[in-house]
Design a protein around this nucleic acid. Structure first.
Length: 882
RNA sequence: GGAGGAUUAGCUCAGCGGGAGAGCGCCUGCCUUACAAGCAGGAUGUCAUAAGUUCAAUCCUUAUAUCCUCCACCA
């Protein structure tokens, strides 16, 4: 056999792109094992607004590891990639572009606007998919989907109409969360509450009959124009007699009543609350209870409308607040202003303060679906990793409110509802309507709003497989097995997918829900654009390679914990990949003139059986870790097997055979090395896919493309005895190496070692059998396993192991006198240094006046010198005993 | 106001009731022709604090402290 040359340096750029191309050219990502048990995963679709960040890298790399592992385990595997149209976010991107040109979306019209949005989508889609390829994701591009493609649009319509038919979708005028900047309603969970500094304004509301006034406290004085009452607690003794009295609303002519409602807290503020149903959810509910009107004060853009006195119209809430407060003050109605921090809702997309806004919207009734989703969890159909997220899930499901799904946007799935201008009838339809089904008038108009983005993504696990059509893909790959996602979208996405899937498919969309942590920087901060602390996955790949990134992330991904990284973190994976590369290079160099032989048990010695045992341990650990999604444990097993066991011990020991063995022995040694290398590549492939595939292609014993090979099975060659024996061997070697190091014996100096084993020591055999190996590893010129009468151990340096003792004769290796002289010189120098330092430290002036850091430094020096002196003294004592 | 995390080596973190660990950094000695992105050896810890359960606690229980998330309509 000829030696195989491998490039001298590990350079991932030389092969990563080529290998990805080869994988796709050979159709390796698609399902391979028709008829076998299926394993499918849907990729959480990234938004087409941006490019992938480190969080995506973590998420997709972990999915890739799972999918590659299961593929190698022989399952019929499918990983569905795709992207999300991300309604608000994407629309915002385009609106920002327009704003730079001095335009608003209304200026160019819906059609032109959408054209531009599709361009943005195409651009980002291209970037995102190329990033996924660079990372090495083995998702099936044949199955790629987009939330607004034809099939998914059909699914969205089907879902909407079906729910409508089931009476689960309704339209109505309600108080919803509204982002004035985005110009659209939001769902409850799209609002982020944040502690915001504000003020409490105590305001006098005079009685209508002029008999005095009461005081209300509010954080939002500008909404007083929408007040329809002032409420007190019915049990509040202070105000009992006031209920029913009329008040004159400040700055207006309007009269409002005092009412009693139990929601008012008696001990909060003045115990009197102004009721503004159109601008506060509590007041809305209160207004409903009392049959009060709701007066909307806002235009869709967040400015005040015609329901406020003229001078305030067109102002933003903040502007109006200032003026209203001023005017109240002038009117003598402002009592006091106190600072008051409170939770204020902000838009999760643009961070603008969200207004409660009275408007006509579409809603989904969630209660029934949530109950089904809860049952799925109770029945064990779904399981979270780590388990603690189940609390979050059930709590959300139990307290769920109806879902506002209409958005006043242009980018998204248009609501499939048509209104007839003639007969006034509303039609909900799976297909586009051109005439009214009721009166056949052509004068119909589709609802202008679009659906919440999550209304398409909640169908993702089955819509991507062809639903509502009964496709083969759906039949084969639904339900999926594992969903990998970060915890920030448990509510938005994961929970809703479970509900949709139970509703439309009658079962849970996946079994295992793996919740990853967030990727943070080394200060523990979330990576974000605004902080500029993000790491671009492509930069990592450029610097260290995709394997280095994947392996490092996997190694750091303790279940559910956040991952903190900086650029340097990825050196770890890079070094490991480099190590694999070089180990391979060495083995391939040694193929020259060798014949690979079949490995049978009788050809194996203890070391061989040991390494097969180590391989087994790694396989078992990985299988177990992957079962429970403990990625870090799997990565550690891979790492320590290959590096610490295979490279550090096994290859090193095999070198002795290669050096001194017969032709036949060398053939066997190489055959075993290559067998282990081949298996190692299969073991490592899910974690370092590119480098292992590249190496695999060079192996004389490869069986085709690595990605399609089977994951290694536990070997039968392992024996407990071999494991135990080699551990003893390692112990003895480490012991002697320790002595050498302690005495500073140079590697080229050979020493004389005698090992004495206890009478009942069970692993003596390995010492005898592997004597030459031990000698080589210890750097021993002579090694004796049995203690001879003639040997005077009092002249040797002793080191005790478990069940044996090693005696190291170092006299020949070192010049004791010279060594002692060297040490004494060192002690002298250290003593002198110490004196200087002590002098400084005993100088009161120095201690009192010098910079504290300088004093600390001197103290540290002192400790160091003392330490050095002590060590050298001990060392000398040791040498003198020899 | 609820809920959940975190607290272990200088740094980042594993550790899933019986020996305190990894990577990086640090120290010592080595370019031993696979790898200096390496090899060998080494140092460093009141496992946040205080009680408790147990033969045994970094791990379980209960408090406390500090930090971080998430959820929640108190005007």
């Amino acid at each position: 056999m000829k030696a195989v040359e491998l490039a001298k340096a590990y350079s991932p750029k030389d092969f990563e792109d080529r290998i990805y191309q080869m994988w796709t050219d050979n159709g390796t990502f698609g399902p391979q094992k028709e008829g076998a048990e299926h394993f499918s995963v849907v990729m959480p679709p990234p938004n087409v607004t941006g490019i992938l960040h480190m969080g995506h890298a973590l998420n997709n790399n972990l999915q890739d590891i799972i999918v590659r592992y299961q593929r190698m385990k022989g399952l019929n595997t499918l990983w569905v990639p795709g992207t999300d149209h991300a309604g608000i976010a994407t629309q915002n991107v385009v609106e920002r572009q327009l704003a730079k040109e001095g335009l608003r979306r209304q200026d160019i019209g819906r059609e032109k606007f959408l054209e531009r949005t599709w361009l943005v989508k195409d651009k980002h889609h291209g970037i995102i998919t190329s990033q996924l390829r660079k990372m090495g994701c083995s998702c099936d591009w044949e199955h790629e989907r987009f939330t607004m493609d034809e099939g998914l649009s059909k699914a969205v319509r089907e879902a909407f109409v079906t729910l409508y038919e089931r009476g689960l979708i309704y339209k109505g005028k309600y108080l919803v969360n509204y982002c004035p900047k985005c110009g659209t309603a939001l769902a409850n969970d799209e609002v982020e509450h944040e502690l915001t500094p504000g003020k409490f304004y105590d305001i006098h509301y005079p009685y209508a009959d002029g008999s005095g006034f009461i005081t209300v406290a509010t954080t939002r004085p500008e909404t007083l124009f929408g007040d329809v009452a002032v409420a007190v607690n019915p049990d509040d003794e202070r105000y009992k007699g006031l209920v029913g009295k009329k008040l004159r609303l400040p700055l207006t002519d309007r009269e409002i009543p005092i009412i009693a409602d139990a929601f008012v807290g008696m001990d909060f503020g003045s115990g009197m609350v102004k009721i503004t149903p159109a601008h506060d959810p509590n007041d809305w509910a209160c207004g409903k209870r009392h049959g009060l009107d709701a007066i909307n004060l806002l235009n869709p853009d967040g400015t005040l409308n015609e329901n406020v006195p003229e001078k305030y119209r067109g102002m933003s809430c903040e502007e109006a607040r200032k003026l209203v407060v001023e005017d109240l003050d002038k009117a003598g109605l402002l009592v006091k202003i106190t600072p008051h921090d409170h939770e204020v809702g902000h838009c999760y997309r643009c961070h603008t303060v969200v207004e409660p806004y009275l408007s006509e919207q579409w809603f989904v009734s969630m209660r029934g679906m949530a109950d089904k989703a809860l049952k799925a969890w109770k029945d064990g159909d779904i399981q979270f990793y780590p388990k603690r997220w189940e609390n979050t899930y059930t709590h959300w499901m139990e307290t769920i409110g109806d879902w506002c799904i209409s958005r006043q946007l242009w980018w998204g799935h248009r609501i499939p509802v048509w209104y007839c201008q003639d007969c006034g009838k509303m039609s909900v339809s799976r297909t586009d309507l051109t005439e009214c089904p009721n009166c056949h008038s052509k004068n119909i108009e589709q609802d202008k709003d679009v659906l919440d983005t999550w209304f398409s993504s909640w169908l993702w696990p089955f819509s991507t497989l062809g639903w509502p059509d009964k496709t083969k893909g759906l039949e084969t790959f639904f339900p999926t097995q594992t969903l990998v996602s970060a915890y920030d979208i448990i509510f938005f996405w994961i929970s809703r997918m479970i509900m949709a899937s139970e509703e439309f498919m009658g079962k849970a969309p996946f079994k295992d829900i793996v919740i990853t942590g967030l990727v943070r920087d080394k200060q523990g901060r979330k990576m974000s654009k605004s902080l500029g602390n993000g790491i671009d996955p492509l930069e990592v790949i450029d610097l260290y390679g995709a394997d280095a990134m994947k392996f490092t992330l996997c190694y750091l991904a303790a279940q559910g914990q956040d991952v903190q990284v900086d650029m340097d973190s990825f050196k770890m994976g890079s070094r490991f990949a480099n190590k694999i590369w070089n180990a391979t290079r060495y083995l391939l160099m040694n193929l020259e003139g060798r014949n690979l032989v079949t490995i049978t048990e009788d050809k194996l010695d203890t070391m061989d059986k040991w390494i097969y045992g180590r391989l087994n341990t790694a396989i078992r650990t990985i299988d177990e870790a992957m079962k429970g999604y403990h990625f870090n444990e799997a990565a550690q097993a891979v790492y320590s097997f290959f590096w610490n066991d295979y490279c550090d011990w096994y290859i090193e020991s095999a070198k002795q055979k290669m050096l001194h063995g017969s032709e036949e022995e060398r053939d066997i040694a190489v055959s075993i090395l290559m067998d282990l290398l081949e298996k190692s590549m299969r073991l490592l492939h899910p974690f370092l896919s590119y480098v292992t595939e590249e190496i695999y292609s060079k192996l004389p014993n490869n069986k085709g493309l690595l990605i399609l090979q089977s994951f290694p099975e536990v070997e039968k060659f392992e024996t407990e005895e071999a494991t135990s024996q080699v551990e003893s061997l390692q112990e003895a070697i480490r012991l002697v190496r320790g002595v050498r190091s302690q005495l500073g014996i140079a590697p080229e100096k050979k020493i004389h070692v005698v090992i004495r084993t206890d009478a009942d020591y069970k692993n003596k055999e390995i010492f005898v059998k592997e004597k030459s190996l031990m000698a080589a590893f210890m750097g021993a010129g002579e090694l004796a396993i049995d203690l001879d009468e003639s040997i005077d151990i009092s002249k040797a340096f002793p080191a005790a192991g478990l069940g044996f003792e090693a005696f190291v004769f170092v006299r020949e290796a070192i010049d004791v006198e010279a060594e002692i002289a060297k040490l004494e010189k060192e002690i002298a120098k250290a003593t002198a240094d110490l004196e200087k330092t002590n002098k400084k430290l005993s100088n009161e002036q120095f201690v009192a006046n010098a910079a504290p850091a300088a004093v600390e430094k001197e103290k540290a020096k002192k400790a160091e010198f003392e330490d050095r002196i002590q060590k050298s003294t001990e060392h000398i004592a040791l040498l003198k005993t020899l």
